[in-house]
């Protein structure tokens, strides 16, 4: 087994795939994390990220996979699950070696795994489209903090850009410490090192628009009023809105 180290990026991952073929690495173990290289991996291979190599792999894959299949691969990558690159590599190897499309062969463990992991990421994307709660600041910025299970900011970008085309907004992922910002023209990645605690309301005092509190009060009231007490079903409530998301939800805080 040979350790293949790449830079942890989506572009870098495909360079890794290219080099595995280029150097005929028979039994690779791909890792994007800087790990302490122990004696077992004395023969580790360091990938040099190269756009041309990446482009070639992607072009080839686009011939072998449907757009849906390719986007499943991307979502799986964004899961950041441990050693997921190796499942992805086996999936890619299978796809490249086969004449016909393999992406629906759910009897193959890697194909099934890829399908299942990408679905989990997709679900998280959908949840974030639902659970983002913007707060309006004095300088007319709609600002939200999220803490998603997976790295879904790249996936939700388009949804928010299309929907909120006429307002400036920023969505910040506290776990991965970066955000996406829309300036009325385009969305860009931003990394801000917040030196205050996002949960600490007092550190925000004074930055909000004067109407912000009113609409939060109204939303909380609405949320309370639409509930039907006679139908209480806490289990279902929590199943749909898991507790780990509550701290950024106005109505559950």
């Amino acid at each position: 087994m040979q350790l293949v180290l790449y830079d942890g990026t989506w572009i870098g991952f495909f360079s890794a795939i290219f080099e595995i073929y280029e150097y005929k690495i028979a039994d690779p173990l791909i890792s994007g994390r800087e790990v302490e290289i122990g004696s077992i991996f004395s023969n580790s291979h360091k990938v040099h990220t190269d756009e041309t190599k990446t482009r070639r792999v992607i072009n080839k894959l686009r011939q072998k996979l449907s757009p849906v299949g390719f986007s499943q691969l991307y979502k799986t990558f964004l899961s950041e699950e441990k050693e997921i690159e190796n499942v992805m590599f086996r999936f890619i190897r299978y796809a490249l070696s086969s004449k016909n499309s393999i992406e629906n062969n759910y009897a193959d463990p890697d194909v099934l795994m890829l399908q299942q992991v990408s679905r989990k990421v997709h679900r998280e994307k959908h949840r974030m489209e639902a659970f983002v709660r913007f707060q309006l600041t004095k300088d007319q910025l709609y600002y939200a903090v999220i803490q998603p299970d997976y790295n879904v900011l790249p996936l939700i970008m388009k949804h928010f850009k299309d929907r909120y085309a006429d307002q400036r907004w920023l969505i910040y992922d506290v776990i991965r410490k970066y955000g996406i910002y829309y300036d009325l023209h385009k969305v860009s990645e931003v990394s801000i090192d917040f030196n205050f605690d996002c949960n600490d309301e007092s550190s925000f005092a004074g930055i909000y628009n004067e109407e912000e509190n009113l609409y939060q009060v109204l939303w909380k009231q609405y949320f309370k009023s639409v509930n039907i007490e006679a139908r209480k079903n806490t289990r279902l409530h929590i199943q749909h809105m898991p507790k780990r998301y509550w701290k950024y939800l106005v109505e559950k805080k």
Binding site: A130, N227, R231, K232, R235, L236, H237, M241, L249
Partner: peptide
Amino acid sequence: ICHAYTEDG
């Protein structure tokens, strides 16, 4: 999109 769920689910 369901943005929230009431306590009755």
